[in-house]
Nucleic acid binder design. Structure first.
Lengths: 331, 331
DNA sequence: CTGTTAGCGCCTTCAG
DNA sequence: CTGAAGGCGCTAACAG
């Protein structure tokens, strides 16, 4: 079966500790001994047992992250921020997309793999709704892009973001078309859209204003396209300020209307949230949220917690900033 | 620090094996003993050490999967197929998206977390290009949606799929517009598109035909939209058969043209590859590839390999099938 | 039904 | 510079 240090040691004619030293690149080894060990490892095809190593060390050198999906710009950026911090301290990252109900059920058990890690990151998900109570994990946990009073968290101030957007919309003095996100009920949605919505609506109502119209769609480019198509078929009565809940949707609308010959800044104004990569390219006004920094900070918290340096709950919120670009500038 | 079985046992006034029995729901325990143990666990906040358990068992009960991304329909379907088989035998699944070069470098080390698993699944990636040689992993490996002679593999016969598509296009007797995928050079692209392309082109050339025109775009809905927009601006000289490398692109084109008032089956014919969920809804003719089945079969191979039931390399290819729907039917 | 004990494979003192 | 030995936490015999 699978060879172990002892067998390697025997074949090399040395003690197990010598083998171990070679394995871990420790000094104070004669070249001769190293040579023999290396050869023995080679011929046996030896591979260290990582479970034994973790047991011995009392830690695994890995961090788990629970998130909705990978592969979309937001999470790719977030992850790059997280990863940049983690690799500084040589921590590995394992991913656990939370999709179906049965997968989730599995994640509620103590013996589930995410928990063979030294720490846990939960992105965009509501821990209370995921678990009925707390996760079955006694080591450090940090929430990112979501928050809860019982855990360390790093998130955006989406309420203020919503208010800032509404403020900008107000200043443009056009009737407002609010493009909201259709949440799938029963899913583990993050509070992001709810917060933005509330910020927007309360800021507007402070001025005695409500959106002229509200449309719902999915949080994607294609969702935006759908709205764009709808607007082409049901034209608005004159220029509107289109306030979309996220850049993806805004850009979908923008592209669709532009391709149909309409012009942003003239026939309509439009803005989104996030300031993702496409937004910049599209010249889209948006509320910028520093996604990468948020990821990095969350990872920092986790590392600190791992080092016992966090003696009280940390909650950090990144403030949003308004980025005005051509799509809300009148010519 | 973290309590262990011994401490639980002491507090409960029993032996460690009794604790262990309770932990693993084994029979032959008096209710009284179970009661005491449970209470001790509760008060101590005890959680089992999974590394110790894995070491003891000689296996971790988990499988790792290396893939490009999650969150798009193709992988979600593939994963559901994999997961359905894995959960039958109570195996967990850990994900490792392969993105940046530094992450990849880490994956080349023996001590990387993916390898703290009993088996490895590699999806859509070329193992030889990822690793310079073999992965540093001595347990079973199965390739899915990609193939290599040195590993078990489950994939599609994309060459034949391409030929079938070309055949159908030929039968429609219209000039062919081939919408190909723009591959990012240097990335770890799967051989999928290359195989389809080759199948298409060789089948056409057997009839002395080449596409009237070839356009390139990204493999997404939005990539299709881009082509649609291009076609609106540069109209074709009469009806064409639009042959797209995947459903996403085809549907993007279809939606764009339809929304502009054109009609599939009349102004143009169009087909894709994959038969994803949207294809059915869109009435799109396509080459069906049983993605979920492929995932399930790959997982089956892995499970068999784990049970030492695979004594030679297995290579399974799923044959494609043509699904004709309204988008290539003349009225 | 229950407690004691021997490892699983590894790393790290501690002597030499 | 090197080997022997103990122990990380857990479970599965093996005795009682």
């Amino acid at each position: 079966m699978k060879p172990n240090v002892k067998q390697v040691a025997k074949l090399a004619g040395v003690g197990t500790s010598t083998v171990s030293r070679v394995l871990n690149n420790q000094p104070n080894i004669s070249d001769e001994a190293r040579e023999k060990v290396l050869k023995a490892i080679e011929t046996l095809g030896y591979t260290p047992n990582l479970d034994a190593r973790s047991l011995r060390y009392g830690q695994s050198g890995a961090v788990s992250i629970l998130l909705p999906v990978t592969g979309i710009p937001f999470y790719d950026t977030l992850l790059s921020g997280i990863y940049s911090e983690l690799e500084k301290v040589d921590l590995d990252l394992a991913f656990f997309p939370v999709v179906g109900e049965n997968r989730l059920r599995r994640y509620r058990e103590v013996t589930s793999i995410p928990y063979r890690a030294d720490g846990l990151l939960i992105a965009s998900l509501n821990p209370e709704r995921m678990y009925q109570g707390r996760p079955p994990f006694t080591k450090p946990i940090v929430l990112v892009d979501t928050h809860h009073k019982d855990y360390h968290s790093v998130s955006f101030d989406n309420l203020t973001a919503g208010q800032m957007a509404a403020q900008h919309a107000l200043e443009c003095r056009l009737p407002i078309l609010f493009v909201d996100i259709q949440e799938i009920p029963g899913e583990f949605e993050s509070p992001v859209f709810a917060d933005r919505r509330q910020g927007i609506l309360t800021a507007l109502s402070r001025h005695g204003i409500v959106p002229r119209q509200t449309l719902y769609t999915k949080a994607s480019l294609e969702g935006g396209r759908k709205i764009g198509q709808h607007l082409l078929q049901n034209p608005l009565d004159g220029p509107h300020f289109i306030l979309a809940q996220c850049d993806d949707v805004a850009i979908g609308i923008l592209r669709h209307l532009t391709e149909a010959g309409q012009q942003a800044g003239q026939d309509f104004l439009i803005m989104g949230f996030d300031d993702n990569q496409d937004a910049q390219q599209a010249g889209l006004t948006t509320i910028r949220q520093p996604v990468r920094e948020m990821g990095a900070k969350a990872a920092q918290f986790l590392v600190q917690a791992l080092n016992q340096e966090l003696h009280q709950l940390k909650h950090q919120q990144f403030p949003p900033s308004l980025v005005v670009r051509p799509t809300t500038s009148r010519p």
